[in-house]
């Protein structure tokens, strides 16, 4: 396949066409922050953390849903981008009730790591402190909506990889919630196969197995892509 020339952060590269800016940057070890992206799942450009500047286009574009084009001039580290990454991160924390000290994910959390990455030292927006449910109805797993950031990685892994489509999103705006079936308690779901892939896909401590204590959670989000790749292999 013919490679195409692009310029990323003032350096020239020859890259594969048909790939997204995010894929290209990851291969070149250029850091782009993401939250809703998980390799192996369809990208939806929801979290707005992977925004990049492309010369000739005024608005910022999400790297995960924008394909590279010949002679594209991409910037990933400008002040404008850093400003938005910071705002987005602060809004994640202000939207629900994220308390790292009492969380199963403490120390291994993608949201917490993002906070460190953008050097979050305070949150300029008022916390909404919504009343969120903790669904403990499933025999093995817990869904804590207080820690959910609505990345919908659980929804996509359940639909695209497991094929069960137990999860989806209800309502809109600040009222959005992840639901199973007809907003049924998870343990009473008719579609859940209890496979546990949503748990590994979840970037925070929103979905976790019972019998885990604070800070002890080990997740393996990479298993999603491993599964997807193995299914493509010919025996």
């Amino acid at each position: 396949m013919n490679k195409i020339p692009v310029i990323i952060d003032d350096k020239s590269f020859e890259v594969d066409p048909h790939k997204t800016i995010l894929e290209v940057c990851r291969e070149l070890d250029i850091e782009i922050l993401t939250m809703c992206h998980l390799k192996g799942l369809t990208d939806i450009g929801a979290c707005r953390l992977c925004l990049v500047e492309v010369e000739g286009i005024n608005k910022l574009l999400s790297a995960c849903t924008t394909k590279v084009a010949a002679n594209m001039v991409i910037k990933t580290q400008t002040e404008r981008i850093k400003k938005y990454q910071r705002i987005t991160t602060e809004l994640f924390f202000a939207d629900r009730n994220h308390v790292c000290a009492v969380c199963v994910s403490n120390g291994k959390c993608e949201l917490q790591n993002l906070g460190y990455k953008v050097e979050l030292d305070r949150i300029r927006y008022p916390h909404l402190f919504p009343q969120c449910e903790v669904d403990t109805s499933h025999p093995w797993y817990v869904m804590d909506h207080n820690r959910c950031i609505m990345c919908t990685r659980c929804v996509r892994v359940c639909n695209e990889v497991e094929g069960a489509h137990n999860w989806d999103v209800m309502n809109r705006g600040h009222q959005v919630r992840i639901i199973s079936d007809f907003n049924t308690p998870w343990g009473e779901s008719s579609t859940c196969t209890s496979c546990g892939k949503c748990l590994h896909a979840c970037p925070t401590g929103a979905i976790w197995p019972k019998a885990i204590v604070q800070g002890q959670l080990e997740k393996n989000p990479g298993m999603v892509n491993e599964l997807v790749e193995r299914r493509k292999m010919k025996l």
Partner: peptide, 20 residues
């Protein structure tokens, strides 16, 4: 429930659309 079964759609997809 009836609509989800007739259209072979996941219940959560139907509920998501209704609440949107």
């Amino acid at each position: 429930i009836y609509i989800a079964q007739e259209l072979k759609l996941p219940p959560s997809r139907v509920f998501s659309t209704v609440t949107f």
